[in-house]
Each structure stands twice: as C-alpha cells, then as structure tokens.
Design a protein around this nucleic acid. Sequence first.
DNA 1: TATCCGACAGGCG
DNA 2: CGCCTGTCGGATA
Length: 945
Amino acid sequence: MCLGPYNKNPVAEQRNASYRSSMNPVEIEEAVTGLAEEPFDRAEFPFQFLAAFGNKKTTISRLRKGNTNQSDIAGGVLQRSNIHIATCDSGTVGQTLTALRDSPKTGTNKAKFILATDGEEFQAEDLISGETVACDFADFPNHFGFFLPLAGITTVQQIRESSFDIRATSRLNRLYVTLLQDNPEWASPERRTDMNHFMARLIFCFFAEDTDIFHAGYQFTETVERMSSGAHEITHEVIGELFRAMNTKHADRTAQGIKTWAGGFPYVNGNLFGGDHALKKRSGSAEMEVPRFSKIARSYLIHIGNLDWTKINPDIFGSMIQAVADDEERGALGMHYTSVPNILKVLNPLLLDDLRSHLEEAGDNARKLLNLRNRMAKIRVFDPACGSGNFLVIAYKEMREIEAEINQRRGEPDRKTEMPLTNFRGIEYRSFPAEVARLALIIAEYQCDVLYRGQKEALAEFLPLDSENWITSGNALRLDWLSICPPTGTGVKVRGDDLFETPLDQSEIDFENAGGETYLCGNPPYLGSLNRNTEQQEDMDRVFGSISKNYKDLDYVAAWFLKAAQFGLATKADAAFVATKSICQGEQVEMLWGPLFKMGFSIKFAHRPFHWANLASNKAGVTCVIVGISNDGPETALLYDEGALLECRNIGPYLIPMSNVIVRKSSQAIHSLSKMDYGNKPTDGGNLILRKDEKDRLIAECPDAAKFVRGYMGSQEFIRSTARYCIWVEDDCLEEADHIPELHRRFNAVRKLRSASVGSQANANASTPHRFVFAPHRSGIAIIIPRVSSERRPYLPVGFVDDSTIVSDGAAVIYEAEVPLFSILASRMHQQWVATVCSRMRMDYRYSNTLGWNTFPLPKLTEQNKTDLTRCAENILLAREAHFPATIADLYDPEAMPEDLRRAHEENDEVLERIYIGRRFRNDTERLEKLFELYTKMTGKKAAA
DNA sequence: TATCCGACAGGCG
DNA sequence: CGCCTGTCGGATA
C-alpha cells in the first residue's frame, strides 16, 4: 500500500509526530537485543527490561523508588497490570519463577507475565495464555515477540508471529541509517533510489546464500567478511566486485577482469544487479556504485548476513522493510500494512473463490483441469497501489497452490508453473517498495517452487532472473494503466520505463483475441480533501476533472475506483479495493457512485465497514470497507458483514441490499417541515468558550460580564450534561464588553488566532473576534440534534433548549421548533434513515441537515397527526424528566434504558409508522425499503416539476 | 454564507 | 491503560 509524500499541512504533521512517540516492534526489538548484549546487572535488569518495552523514564524511576513497585519477592519488580520480574542467584531460576507464580501480589496486581533470570538462564510465562519461554539469557531477545503485549501491542497477532521479519527489519534499519550518515551524498532524493536499489540487492544476496541459490563455498556474507577483514574501508569495493560478477555472464567474466574470488558467484542479472538508474540517466554509464562502509556499518552488514534468511515471510516482510527507506514512515515502520486476512477478503471474492470452485467442479477430469490451468496462465493480477507487493504475493501464492493441486491431479507433480511472475503487476509511488515488491515476488516464486516441485527444480530454474520490470515505480493516478498492464495475449509485453509516460496506443492491443482476464486489487491511500498536497490535488483533477465537477471532497482513494472502472471498460476487468468507509457514506456516495453507475458498473461484492486497528495504543484507527466492482452484470451480489455472508440481487452504494438509489445532499428540504440550521461555530481556539469554573471566576471578578455569558451546547454537553459556557456579545454591546479586561484579553487572543489561520473564514472574521464565524442563532425554543452520537443508542438523542443557550457547531439546531418535529427526529424511522444515508464517525451516527433532515421522506402530516405526535413527544420528555438527573447518555444506554422511556418511544414509533403505512413496520429493512421508495417518488416528482 | 470530514483523538473509570 | 464515544477548524461549494 502506498502512502505518498503528503502531509504538507501542519495539523497532519503534528499527528505524525505524536504517532512516533510510542515504540514500535522494531524499536523494541533493537532495545531488547541491546540489553542482552550488555553485561548482566542483577539490580538493574528489571528496569532495563521495562525500558526496552517502551516504559517512560518517570514510570521507571517511580518503580525504582518503590512507589509503584508492588513486588513481595526479594529482588522483585512488579508493574501493575503488566509484569512481575525477579532476578535471582545463579541456578535458582526455576524456584524463582514458581515463587513469582505463587506470589499473591502477582494475582492482585493482575500481572500478565512473570519473568525470572540469573543472567545465564531465562524463564518467563504468559499468565493469560499459559505459554512459557525457557532459554539461555543470551537468547531471550529471540522471544521478544512473546512480550509485545507489554508495549500495548496486542491487536495484530501476526506481528507477534513474525519475529524474524521484525528482527531483519530492525537490523536493516540500523544499517540503512548508518550508511546514509557515512555517505551523506547518497541522501539526496536522486541518489536515494540508488541506495534503495543497493539495499534490495543486499537482501537478495542474504536470501540467496541461505537458500543455496549461491553455491556452497561462495557465501556472500562470508566472502565480504573475509575479503575486507581488517580493512573495512574496502568493503564497498568487495561488494561492488561481487555485484559486478553477478551482473556478468560466466562466459564474459574473464574478459571483464572479474576477480577469481568473485568468479564462482552465479549470474543473477534481472536488473537487480544492473547499473544504477540515476547514474545511467546522468552519465549514460551503467557502472554501479556501492556506498562506503564505516567499521560499524560493516559489522552491521555481517551481523545481518548471519541471520537465517530462509525464514523470511514475503507477505509481511516487504511492508516492514519498505518503511526503512521512508523518512516519513520510519517512525511507524510498516505498521500500516494490510494483513493477510484482509488481503484475502479482497482476493477471495474477486477471483480466488471462483478459481477454487472451478477446481472443485473439475474433479479429476484432466481436460477440465487443463482448461483451468490454461485460464490461470492468462490471468493478470494488477495492484495499482502495490506498496511492497503484499496483494500480489498472496495472489501468486494462492494461485500457485491451486495450480499445484491441478498438476497433482493430472499426475504432473513436478511440472513447471504456467503462471509467469510478470502476470502479477503493480504500480507503486515510492521506488524502494517497488523494488521490494519485485524482490518479494521473486522470493515467493522460489519458495513456491521449493514447496510444490522440490529444491532441486527450484534452484535449476531460478537464475538468471527475468529482467522485465513489471512493477512500475510512479504515480498511479498519472500513469496509463493499460500500458502497464495490458491483458495477456495481446502481444504487448512489459514496456520500458520511458513508455509509461506515453499512453499505449490502443491499436497495439488486439482486445478481441486477448482472452486473458485482469483483476485489479489493492489498498490505495486514503486522504480526505484536508490532507492532500498539491500533487495529490492535481491527481484528483486529472482523474475526475473531465468526469464531473463535484469531486473535490471525494477521498483520494476514489480515484483508484474511477481509473479501475475506465480500465474495466476497455478490458472487462473486475476490481476490488480496500477503502475508507466514507466513499460509501454521506456526500461522497453521489460523487463516486454517480459516475460509476453511469459507466455501467455495479457492486459485485462488498465487506461492510470494519475497524482497521492501529498498532499504537491510544490512537484511533480508521473504518474501512472493501468494495468489488464489475460491469459484467453479475446475477447475484455478495455482501459480507463480519462473519456473515448475504447473497442478494444488488448491493446499493450504502452497502446494504437495495437498488442503486443515491441520496443527494440538499440545502432544500423535500418535505415542508421547518429549516434545520448548522450550529454556531466559534473558530476561537477556545477563547470564547468557558468551563464552569472559568465562568464562575469571571462573574465573581466582574459581575458586569454576566450578561455576556450564555450556555454553550454541542453533542458532548447535551448528551453527558457537561455544562460549558460561551461569550456571546451582540455588535451594539461590543464597546461595553471590550472594557472588561478578561473579555478584552480573550478577544485579542481570538483576533490573533484567526489572523494567523490559513483558513479564509477565520481570516475574514479576525476583525470581529467577539462574534462566532457562523452564527445563525435565533431566540425562542430550539431543538438540538447532536452532530455525532454513539451507534449503540436505539434512537438519536435529541432535545429542547431555550435561547439562553447557544447551540454549537457540535450539533444541528431547529430554531422556534414545533413539538412534532421532536417526535420525528426521535423516531426509529429517522434514526434508520440517518444511519444509512449520513456519514459516520467511526461507526457512530453523524447527523447532517443536508443529508439526513432535508432528504427525509415523510408523508404530509394532517392536523390530527401533529396532535398525536405532540402527545408522544410530551410523553418521551416526561419519561426523561422522571429520571432526573440522569443524562441522555444514561437514559439511552441500551443496557439500562428505563422501561417507561422505552414505552414512550415505542408509542411514538407506532404513531409515526401508522402515518406511513397504517401499521407498524416489521423490521428496519422494511422501514428502509419504504423510506427509499418514498424518497425516489418525492425527488422524482420534484425533478419533473 | 454554510457544512462535511478526519489511515482521527482524547477523556473517563 | 483499555474502552467508549464525540472536538474542532480547514477546505470547499
């Protein structure tokens, strides 16, 4: 997955900075390894151990002083809710661990782990899972994954199981940083590509020497170590010579003057060892360069080479290693990667399930099996945001498994694969991940060959590498996808770098006879309009500019869907991407699905919104969907919701079973009820807002200020009854207010903040700091509708406020509201509508006047209807009052909603639903059907009129 | 003028 | 420290 160089904006940068503060698995691995290399200090070890897992200095010094150390064991350190550690006399590790396990404090303080060591032996136990570790002290860093929950890392089980990948990443990270320090001229953006290329070559060599791709006696690491022994300054020459050998055919080596010690290395080629790109462009020469190694860098290199690289897992390793080269992402170190289960959520319904069902159907029929194999050989999988190639690697591995089964059944178990690696194509913005993706695929191919055909066969055909460059590094939204991934059988092979700028002449492709299928997949970057940089903004213009004029608020990821659709129109390719949920909610539905439906696409399968966990604790994640599109008119569509699968006739753009109805946001209501306003927006940096204590002090110090203070109510204040206040000054009282020193001070602060803002609205209002930048406030009784509220509540929480209170932009508001409006807003009908067509924050309801209120389909109300609804509203309000001082949050807690309140709502629903169909609806599905039907009717009539 | 969104953020128990 | 649930201001129309 690619995250381009975005975040020009200071807010986003700040977010990134805070993300870096917690330790990631790679940093922890480094710290733990460092700890094992130090001499064992019995008294200090527990604290060093905790520090290695990211505990803050203050936490540790408090533990050290004994303030928070709960241990009842001699030499013990017990951190509440985490770990009980004890160091002990030599040879007593077993007893000490037992003592820790039996310690009453271990239980009362909810320790998750116990750990005992004497500096020679190391034993630990995970008290929740019961897993244990027992090893030599020097080896305990190998088990660091075991302890990751100590750092709050529990969400991604896979990380824990990928100790090797994390360790390798950590070492490479160290080497990379050191090399950049030693060779500052390689840090320029231009040379960085060469550095990345160099790292990819190294990784290949480490893998090759451990898997016998390099012949015995010609080990890369060993050769480098031997030839540069005592002379680290020539390390780069040694490596350069080895690379040169691997780039030279055996027949030419003597003529090229390759040194004899390098002569036994195989010819690898495949561009991997070819001359470096930037240099070639600059001087026309393809001579490759190797960065210089300091003594430390050389020792890092040898250390890395001595790891067991056969354990490399190309599915996830790539995601981690790509982050090594990325200054922006180094802090997060690949933690945005797409896990294998999530990748399969895309690939299974997109193509793998179909292939597997054909395999099953073929049984042992040799002809059918052959057809399937031939079909698979012509399938291209194309990930236009491939990052380090996870999707492609998984697709390749899964398809190889199917092919192996075919060959098994056909009695050809050793058969060479029919699926060229070059059928798994990708585009990636950054050069290093693109390089890693190529490498990951090569490694995956080798591993599959070993698995399905045997090591001998795998080795025999592995080298030299195919030199085709089928993973393109560039901006996917500016490249011509057909040029990069034309269907198989068209006669167009992989095109050279220079051609990517020029779109493929479509006459080059014989689509009629192509026959090969293409499937597009991936997890492209998500970026709201707020966080895009200029280049990304222009990308959107290029992709959507000629299609619609209403696209600027679309998420960046939507551009991949549109390009995929355009690609699909030319070649009949289906596509499926992971995306932010917002492309299937709220205003974006119209912007994206309007054009896609018009182009003849529909949703073939989808995963309903699910939470994408973030490894860092205390950080919110993102809510994702997976959407597969096709213009092939599928007869049924598959809708996945967590574990469940629903087959339906059509999946609507809101990812529910329905027709392709799009609800458009509108500033005009389709019903004839009162106008709903957006709340009053301060843009004040908090200076016009007062907590209760601030308000009390202000009025105590200056009673004259009292008349400028009003209640201030948004979502939080209303739902949780947390009082806040605001300064509210009408223009004609400004002079008086400005004489109050505290208000004067606050006005100045607002003026300063608004002037300094990059937002035009803030600037425009800088000279009127006593006023909110948006202030529709009117007197009279108003209804407040929180902008965001929890999805757990069975009804939208709404309520009345009087005009001593200012409704903030944290809520919507209807001024001078009539009581029946409350009944409608508080109904199940309205909740269902808003839940479906409005956007969400996480999974929580997010209210919008233009999307939820103005579009709400409601039959015309009679006077009798209004009287009935008024009575219902009064009953709801009375029931709420009966439980004073319970907050709205208390009252609408689904576990604890009072019975009388629930009854009042039921009654309200009954009255309203009778207005729709003369009876109660059976369920929410029926409610939504009716609402969408009515919406279509009401908007259709309006359009005609 | 008006408003939708956040590869989100932060407080509470 | 994990769970629960909504701020706030910029970009855009």
